[in-house]
């Protein structure tokens, strides 16, 4: 419990150690690993994934949520546009969810988009949110409400 408490404190203060942030103005693309059998997500499905309410893509493919560390623009856009939560609310939400054992995994905090790209290639069923302008061509970008980043009305901006 002591170690867990220390870990919790670390998690709470980690928000102040923000990493690199995406430049303002570009869309945030929803990128998934190649094995994810989905090309298009609705906004509500995205919200469920972000809230941990949907944990499987298919019966044997888990959702691994990769989110940039606090203070990153991608994270900020997601929290604001999709979840309509502050950073503290989002942290509180996941701590509660983990402690209530409603989810066996939590969003993995990643420091850089490169790290996200690397993990997308190595973790089956992973999903990440990165600046659309930095997405490599070999990665699978999922439509959001039928829209790709850059399209008019794309919600993650």
């Amino acid at each position: 419990m002591k170690a867990f408490g220390i870990t919790l404190i670390i998690v709470l203060i980690s928000g102040s150690i923000a990493g690199w942030t995406a430049p303002a103005g570009s869309d945030i693309a929803v990128v998934v690993s190649r094995d994810v059998p989905i090309d298009d997500l609705s906004f509500s499905e995205l919200r469920k994934i972000l809230l941990g309410d949907r944990q499987y893509w298919s019966s044997n493919l888990r959702v691994t949520l990769l989110i940039r560390a606090p203070a990153a623009r991608e994270r900020e856009v997601i929290l604001r546009n999709v979840l309509e939560m502050t950073e503290a609310q989002y942290r509180q939400y996941w701590i509660g969810k983990v402690f209530r054992a409603e989810s066996s995994s939590a969003p993995k905090s990643i420091a850089t988009n490169e790290m996200a790209f690397s993990l997308l290639n190595s973790i089956p069923g992973s999903i990440a949110f990165v600046d659309a302008s930095q997405v490599p061509k070999d990665l699978k970008v999922v439509r959001l409400g039928g829209l790709l980043p850059g399209a008019k009305g794309y919600p993650l901006n």
Partner: peptide, 21 residues
């Protein structure tokens, strides 16, 4: 469960130092 929660919550942390510091 404690370890799992510890690990799960730890996974949300982005740090350049080893776990537990």
């Amino acid at each position: 469960n404690d370890i799992q929660k510890q690990v799960t919550l730890l996974s949300e942390i982005t740090t350049e130092t080893p776990a537990g510091g």
